[in-house]
Nucleic acid binder design. Structure first.
Lengths: 202, 202
DNA sequence: ACATTAATGTTTACACTGCTTACATTAAAT
DNA sequence: ATTTAATGTAAGCAGTGTAAACATTAATGT
């Protein structure tokens, strides 16, 4: 039997790594533990990921692909509805896949340009946002559009970070008893309404 | 001579750790390397920091203390000027002390409540922001103030993250040739003006 | 003053990590 | 069919977090 050569080890390693990352956090994801959980030798992964950062980059890229998918699933005619949906899905992704989110936006992979796959999927996500903002915005001037994109992304991204630090989860997204440290009920009670108010200012 | 007992090892370890963290990033800061750079035995730090996360927490707390100091140094009569200054100082801190900033806002210390020092200094920073927002805002209702605080902090925090990911540094803060990936010239050319426009919406 | 104790430092040791080098096996190409 | 490139394994280095046993000194109670 030929089980020496696995066949598609890389694919399996990657999906296993994604699972492990989301389950235990990327800091716990080691090449050795990945090899173990995939039932191959300790050094087998090195044929497919030259360094640990390589592995991180590929997992992060997969994360962006899923984030993109979630953000672009709504197909309303109303650009406003699409934008709100994208925002909600973004926040939902960030809170539910928080470990992967950390990998994507933290410093584990400091320079995306080193990893074409990652750069492309991250950029794809941004470009989708830009498309939706363009559809929504009256002023179609590119540089003003991009400024708005930065505004939106920054704020939503920061919101995810703060919501997690404050250990608050909007009720709309998850059923669990929450004890907010700070009163951010406007967000907590009705996320969509909050987002609607939010995009009104752009 | 009595050099067996160091005297104030903890203080020195901490300031050394802060330096190392900012110099090399917190991922490179190990208890062993800290011990080495402080010329003590490998395990000496454990008398003062039970775990690595303990060490992280103390360095992060020092970071918040410095951030607080920077944010609260302006003493204008105009609440608006103070708020803009705080925002500028925050962004400046985040970009210039990016390694420490990562430690403070990343996941190295997931739960601040475990570390009273850290929790208090982080909270002090937030409360200062709230004070400035209160002074600036017409509506003094607490919960609306706090909502505004979240808005501001989230956006500024997200902005720092994005500016770094995009490898852009506002000209006002640092002199260095920059090649923005995206056209965010409004931010890049005049940070204070950007911040002024920003707080107008709250 | 002196003995006891607590605090603080060192040594040693274990299990884990990233990664390199040398080697083994097999699929693909000529 | 033979060569070659791809992909697997084994062994090993240097660095890590952390615990346990031991050494030295400062603090404390009598």
């Amino acid at each position: 039997m030929s089980s020496y050569h696995h066949g598609n080890l890389k694919t399996e390693l990657l999906s296993c790594a994604y699972k492990m990352c989301e389950r235990d956090g990327y800091t716990k994801l080691s090449i050795r533990s990945l090899a173990k959980e995939s039932n191959v030798s300790q050094t087998a992964p090195y044929r497919h990921f030259k360094t640990k950062e390589d592995l991180y980059a590929e997992v992060a890229a997969e994360g962006f692909n899923r984030l993109y998918k979630a953000m672009s699933k709504s197909k309303y005619k109303s650009p406003k509805k699409n934008l709100i949906s994208a925002g909600r899905e973004y926040i939902s992704f960030g809170l539910k896949n928080s470990n992967t989110y950390d990998l994507m936006f933290g410093t584990a992979v400091p320079d995306f340009t080193k990893y074409p796959n990652l750069f492309i999927s991250a950029n794809k996500t941004y470009l989708h946002l830009r498309t939706e903002v363009t559809a929504y915005s009256k002023d179609k001037d590119l540089s003003s559009i991009e400024e708005k994109c930065i505004d939106i992304w920054a704020k939503i991204h920061g919101l995810v970070g703060l919501l997690r630090k404050l250990q608050v989860v909007p009720k709309q997204l998850l059923e669990m008893p929450d004890t907010p440290i700070m009163p951010i009920n406007a967000i907590n009670n009705n996320l969509d309404a909050y987002l609607e108010k939010f995009i009104k200012n752009i």
